[in-house]
Design a protein around this nucleic acid. Structure first.
Lengths: 338, 338
DNA sequence: TTAACATATGAAACCGATTGCATAATATTC
DNA sequence: GAATATTATGCAATCGGTTTCATATGTTAA
């Protein structure tokens, strides 16, 4: 356990620790010959700078926290990739923190930033309650959120990078309408929550814009899982007049829908078309391949990380708010006349 | 930017910083009344301990690095889950580091440990070359590897948690043999690498143990991707006598095989049975569902993290080496008489 | 030759906690 | 009531860097 510090180097070379620090960091003046000697001895002593000491003095950790509800959802993998691309180029490390959809854990993540474990944070599905908002507002470090809360007052000033899911569902629905399909069902999540409601609105507005009838009985709330989609689809299919198409609020649900159709002996897309959302990896692996709306996870990650870096380096004065537009990926499951 | 430290608290309360430290940490003696006052003022000042300072003094970071080749492979996510379960209960944070299959990045990860960014590291697919081994051996922090190199000398003393893939392939192959299938092909990865070779051996030994003929022309090296499996399968299927079953070295390859079979108009499992390995999420989503060998990623993660915690808390004196036995998950794709 | 300036280096403060040692105050024992 | 043990607190050193300021030396300009 032969530790080596700038003091050890200084002693060996016969200079002061300050000089060693300057030689190694390249800041300030330092003679060429001295510098050479210092570097030589540093290598000999197998010197590695202590980051804790550096952090204490410089007040920078070169780390950021990515707070995410759970990692089971493949959706977040791509976000991490995007984030990491940016962080890497700035020499930052990424700390992964699970919030498990719980306010308590989100507060813990915030606390870690307060304790200067990281210089900033990117947070997914932030709970917009008073306690949380207050906690995040009192931070002296930048935070980027990836879900936006549209408040009545609109007084909060957060950095946001998010994707317009309203537009996403609308795109998917319009794609069906364009093919002449009129009787379209929507399987959504919890529509009393903001994101769930927005997705519903995308469906609704696509119909209304096309002057189609909006039949509320074709709107089924469920949960965002495969079985959620499966059960909702079953209830739709056992009706006398089944819909010609289903828009699901995410891919897992859509896959559940496809399963229910298959069991009911219906062929996709001929008997019934299906559109999902998220454009997960599996969307292109199921049979038939699933039409889906890409939510650009990786790009969200990249943008969020970039905003954070800009804030940390003083290159961003105004509010950061980036709204990404989703992209429809048409595959077999919705091609009525393919 | 009203920072607050133990000095500010000390001043307000009228005690020394040492007393504040003791009151807040609970270590050492501290009077009840003083403690109360200190806690009260700490809350008033919105005090949060500075982790950098704490780290510097205590020489502990309460973080560990998970160095992983890439994050695109869903395989690793379950590992992260397992790791995190353990870390959480010990109050550690996880730093994610991408090595991109490159030695240079692995050395960077090691350097981070040297610089005391983290207290320990879990590393996936470590390159067993001299430089890397030397670097890791000179660390004064515990490292757990998840791939084992069986060296001739066997002199290295690393902590390992890994799964016996030899046994995995053997299990899968035996499962087919038990059903009376004799003509079984093996699509492997790079068999000049240790892991690739071991998988091949599992296949070979299963046949030999059952006194079956080992036909080397049925062994196809390819790469560990869907298209790798697809191409290999095509070359198998265009022969005059096609195999009755295929064992693929991982699930992605197996899915490629299934695709090739489908295109060739063969029905799975009746015309040809397929077995994969990794038991990824998609194995149960493809049609027909894919029989696979579960490599217990989450358990690897949990065990690796536990060894690390034990080392860090002095609860482990001997070498840590845990070999996990894979588990066969039988699904439709291999059930010849289902 | 001297003023003005650039370069090289050291001394020491500082970042914000922890902790060993010394001392003071209080409690316990005989 | 004296001796001893226990509890409470402060002082000051320490962790390992960075950085400001002062000083010393060397260089160039006038």
């Amino acid at each position: 356990m032969n530790k080596s510090t700038i003091y050890h180097i200084a002693e060996q070379v016969g200079v002061s620790p300050a000089t060693v620090s300057r030689a190694l960091s390249g800041r300030g003046y330092c003679g060429e010959k001295t510098k050479e000697k210092i570097l030589k001895i540093a290598k000999e002593l197998n010197y590695a700078p202590d980051q804790a000491a550096k952090m204490l003095k410089t007040r920078k950790t070169k780390k950021i926290i990515f707070a995410v509800p759970d990692i089971c959802n493949p959706f977040y993998f791509d976000m991490i990739n995007g984030i990491n691309q940016v962080l890497e180029s700035y020499g930052y490390l990424l700390i992964l923190f699970y919030t498990k959809h719980s306010l308590k854990e989100e507060l813990k993540a915030i606390q870690n930033v307060r304790e200067k474990v990281a210089d900033g944070m990117i947070m997914v599905s932030f709970h917009f309650c008073e306690e949380n908002i207050k906690a995040i507002n009192s931070l002296h470090a930048p935070v980027v959120l990836t879900n936006k809360y549209v408040s009545a007052e609109g007084g909060d000033k957060f950095d946001y990078v998010y994707v317009d899911t309203y537009e996403g569902v609308k795109l998917g629905t319009e794609h069906l309408i364009k093919q002449g399909i009129e009787k379209i069902a929507f399987i959504g999540g919890n529509m009393s929550e903001q994101t769930g409601f927005q997705r519903y609105c995308g469906y609704r507005d696509a119909l209304l814009d096309a002057n189609l009838n909006l039949d509320e009985s074709l709107v089924i709330p469920s949960n965002y899982t495969e079985s959620g989609g499966y059960l909702a689809a079953q209830s739709l299919l056992e009706r006398s007049e089944r819909p010609q198409a289903v828009v699901a609020a995410n891919d897992l649900m859509a896959i559940g829908v496809m399963k229910a159709c298959e069991e009911a002996g219906l062929s996709i897309p001929d008997d019934i078309a299906v559109v999902g959302m998220d454009n997960l990896d599996i969307a292109s692996r199921v049979y038939p391949k699933l039409t889906s709306v890409a939510l650009l996870q990786e790009e969200i990650g990249r943008n969020a990380a970039q905003i954070l870096m800009d804030r940390l380096h003083g290159n961003l004065s105004s509010d950061g708010e980036i709204k990404l537009l989703p992209r429809l990926v048409v595959r077999k499951s919705s091609m009525r006349f393919g």
